[in-house]
Design a protein around this nucleic acid. Structure first.
Lengths: 161, 161
DNA sequence: ATATCTGCAAACAATTTGCCGACCA
DNA sequence: TGGTCGGCAAATTGTTTGCAGATAT
């Protein structure tokens, strides 16, 4: 565990949050992985692979979607990312270091709000126990609408635009 | 002149539960739709399209997967079915007339247990409200493992065969 | 040095769809 | 009879993978 001290010969300002985690888990850091790590670190939302690729390529197009897929899967296996599925067919990714949380999806805007709730955790555990299981994981998604009732467009879940 | 006779000209014993719902919503009932409706009515689990197709074809092979896909989507739009996603890539279907419920998935066996919980409903509504939303929908899935979650800090309890 | 990446395109799996004959209302 | 529906196979979409050259350690 030797550390490379600050010989700023390679302009590498600051290893991103996620990059640091990658190194911790002993991943070989390539240019594209560093790039993806940075995009992930800067993301405040839950991008899908296509979106990650778009953002990464915008910074440096020496990368392909295949690599994003591979990297994202690797990071998931290493416990750095969590794969989510908000419907819509594509997997969304969420860095685990943001802490355990759930999501509330605004059905009108498609906007995703994160939240935590101790009360819920307790209830969930209680339910599992009542059914004779020990809780290993959970998934909670709430779909809501802001205050006043608005004419919601019919149709199914195709949060495109 | 109407012939509402009891002459079994078309051996149609009893419209299945789901078939009745289809008719109610004004769907044109064809042989294959009736078949799928019957399979769905008899199902106690949450089959995916492939499985529905298998079961239907076993009763009458004058049907194709494409039709199952089309029908299942139609029933979903009509609110007769609910599409679920328990991971694994394929969509699972769940008749809505079984009532509102959530799922607990046994991570070891893959078995799905349905349950309801008033306490949870209350908490969910409260969370949404706290975030400034009115609850429109929710999705809760618990993943558990059979075994004693009991406060027994002793050695690990081997999962019973 | 060398085991591990990456890009590319072909392979895959789940689901959709165009075309046209078959069928229900 | 007219408008829908169903079968078949080709088309789409999201994701994976084999290969050969590029890289990190």
């Amino acid at each position: 565990m030797h550390s490379h001290d600050r010989h700023a010969e390679t302009a590498r300002p600051d290893p991103s949050r996620i990059e640091r985690l990658c190194v911790e888990r002993g991943l070989k850091m390539t240019g594209q992985r560093r790039l993806i790590a940075r995009v992930l670190s800067e993301a405040e939302d839950h991008p899908d692979v296509e979106e990650l690729y778009r953002r990464a390529a915008a910074l440096d197009d020496r990368i392909s979607v295949a690599t994003v897929y591979r990297t994202v899967r690797l990071l998931e296996e290493k416990g750095i990312l969590e794969r989510r599925d908000f419907g819509g067919g594509r997997a969304r990714y969420d860095p685990t270091d943001r802490g355990h949380h759930h999501h509330l999806i605004d059905v009108d805007t498609g906007r995703v709000i994160e939240f935590e709730d101790a009360e819920f955790e307790k209830v969930a555990r209680a339910i599992a126990e009542r059914l004779g299981f020990s809780l290993v994981g959970q998934r909670l998604e709430l779909f809501g609408r802001k205050g006043a009732p608005a004419p919601a467009p019919r149709g199914r879940t195709k949060p495109k635009a």
